[in-house]
């Protein structure tokens, strides 16, 4: 039980610029306490939400997803959230169907005035994901699934030993390699 309490999930939250993002701000300046387990990504409108974003977050190791936007009828652009509502309803059904646990993916409508709802929702999302533990489904791993003769391993350090540095090999350099060290 203790371990579960200690486990901090990584949640990617997509907030609409015009409402839920503001609600997060308001909750902050109002000194409301809420868990810090999610990374907020500001999107212009929930209509911008693509299923790809959700799958990409899971793929990169997110344990949970939370998408929040304006109440139906209140979209800054008129109909963005109406469209995303259909898309996300269907996507959630599909992800349920293939076995992504119910509590990993959350959607909500939170206006910029609803700091309290934001706080409650944040607690609810984090608790649900924490209860499920780390996500293993649809996660891309560049280390497992090695194909023989390269042995399978959980962390690279277990099954590999470093060679000495290759003489003359280029150093990671932000200017020429996009800074990703390749």
């Amino acid at each position: 039980m203790k371990e579960i309490e200690l486990y901090e999930p990584r949640i990617v939250a997509f907030f609409c610029h015009w409402c839920s993002y503001g609600a997060a701000d308001l909750a902050g300046v109002s000194r409301m306490e809420y868990p810090a387990s999610f990374r907020a990504v500001r999107i212009p409108c929930t209509g911008r939400m693509s299923p790809k974003f959700i799958l990409h977050a899971l793929r990169q190791g997110a344990d949970g997803i939370w998408v929040s936007g304006c109440h139906p009828g209140d979209c800054h652009y008129g109909t963005g959230n109406y469209h995303s509502r259909r898309r996300l309803e269907l996507l959630k059904n599909m992800l349920d169907y293939i076995g992504i646990e119910e509590g990993r993916i959350h959607f909500s409508w939170i206006s910029s005035a609803e700091a309290e709802k934001f706080q409650q929702m944040a607690i609810r999302v984090v608790e649900a994901v924490r209860g499920l533990g780390p996500n293993t489904r649809l996660v891309k791993s560049v280390c497992s699934n090695c194909i023989p003769p390269v042995p399978t391993c959980d962390t690279m350090h277990e099954c590999y030993e470093p060679l000495e540095e290759i003489p003359g090999a280029p150093r990671p350099n932000g200017s020429c390699c996009g800074g990703n060290g390749l």
Partner: peptide
């Protein structure tokens, strides 16, 4: 196609 349109009273069971 249904994902290119909407109705104001569409079901929203997954939204809190």
């Amino acid at each position: 196609p249904p994902l290119s349109t909407y109705r104001p009273d569409d079901p929203e069971d997954h939204f809190k």
